[in-house]
Amino acid sequence: MKTFFLKVNFIFIFLIFAFISNISNSKEAQAELLKPNWSFDGFFGTFDRASLQRGFQVYKEVCASCHSMSLVSYRNLGEKGGPEFTEEEVKAIASQYEVTDGPNAQGEMFIRPGRPSDKFKSPYPNENASRSANGGAYPPDMSVLAKARPGGADYIYSVLMGYEEKVPENIKLEDGVYYNKYMSGNKIRMSKPLSDGSVEYSDGTKASEEQMAKDVTSFMMWAAEPHLEVRKKLGFKSVLYLLILTILVYLIKKKIWSRIESKV
């Protein structure tokens, strides 16, 4: 009976899920997203530190010239569950950036080297500046981008890999617009950002387009969900705990009810 109860409760909820997932899939026909094996998927998923560190390098050297990541701080790079750079590395990374601070005692703003507690420096002072520098298109902030698109990490990876030279005949591209197989609407204002050797990895990994796309997507996923590892670990513990408690309480309940059920 118990298992039956469980089963049906699940069925109810999955029914609702099925409907909703059906709905989110029913959007315009789009090429099916690429789905690489992410280390952070699944019940015990964790980030690959080396990949995150490489991903940060790709972000820093390629993406950061247009895309901000304004919700992430340099100190986050050294925190547990992330790229886990050492404290010295984080300080060194932060100090490469010039940060406006102030006002000082004379009432003037001044420029100082970045500190770990500073937020990632944005390439443009505001959205308008960013738009005007990019032909009217706003390169979105990448802090939570991996959570802000249906398909998440798969979608970002697919878009990075989805540039094709051959444009289908039914698609007309305006100036400064590129064809992308996976972008919704198939048109994108960003030129192909990654090609083999765009960066030179310090750990010796071959910087193929695919590798860089994977690394930077992982990095973006971490930026969007910095507590993913703790969440999954805590999740496993709490589910296990609740399972045990449920069984214990169920046994008590059975005992209590056996008092009257035997009487009838």
């Binding site: 705990y241 609740l242 045990i244 408690l245 214990l248 309480v249 008590i252 005992k255």
Partner: peptide, 19 residues
Amino acid sequence: RRDFLTTVTATVGAVGVGA
């Protein structure tokens, strides 16, 4: 035996609430 089961469950429950 029932008391034992209840004690164990109450303890486990209390730990969970605490957490």
